[in-house]
Design a protein around this nucleic acid. Structure first.
Lengths: 99, 99
DNA sequence: TTTTAGTACCTTGTTGTGCAAAGTATAAAA
DNA sequence: TTTTATACTTTGCACAACAAGGTACTAAAA
């Protein structure tokens, strides 16, 4: 069931602060939202191509440079829509369960 | 985002009472969970093949006979697991949004 | 100076889900 | 007997998630 909400999770994470893919994966793992690189990298690229995200390179203290992603205005608008949609889904489930 | 929770929705509907596919689709539509036949029929067959559902034929007052689906014990157990998983997903989203 | 270890980003091929569209079948009304 | 309404089913496509493997940069160890 977690599958469908991944896009929402990533926008939510980036709404708090910019982050690079490896750290996003770590955050999702810590939140019990297990995912793998092969899922997250293409998803970030898709969201960037939709104009929801943008990024900048930054040198790392150790290792190769990091690609810091952040929300665009369009991404913030999309997140606001998804906040509404998410509440509706929760309502819907409650309705189906309780009548 | 609705996509991933369809299986859960159907088990939830059938936990209240048995139902035939056309009426399940109507219930989902009324709950703003828009779906189409080409999604629901294969899903019901999948859940039946997994042993989560069973069905019986019943004559309709008008039109062709209806295929009434109902939960098996295994289906009820699966639903209980999904109830837990669903709560966890809601918690996870909250955590990602608020830290 | 070459190799290894650690970190980070990316791609390819497979699988399964959701959907549009078309198809089959029953029953009753026109 | 054709149409209308209801109901179940199948086919082919598109795309998302994943496993697995690949590329590349940096620093420390050999």
């Amino acid at each position: 069931m977690r599958k469908g909400v991944l896009e929402y999770c990533i926008l939510s994470i980036l709404s708090r602060r910019e982050a690079y893919p490896s750290s996003i994966i770590d955050m999702l793992k810590q939140a019990n939202m297990l995912v793998v690189e092969g899922t997250v990298y293409p998803l970030l690229i898709r969201q960037k191509n939709q104009g929801l995200l943008t990024y900048r390179w930054e040198e790392s203290p150790q290792g190769p440079p990091r690609k810091y992603y952040m929300l665009t205005d369009k991404g913030r608008a999309q997140l606001a829509e998804m906040d509404v949609a998410w509440k509706e889904i929760i309502e819907t489930i409650n309705m189906l369960k309780n009548g």
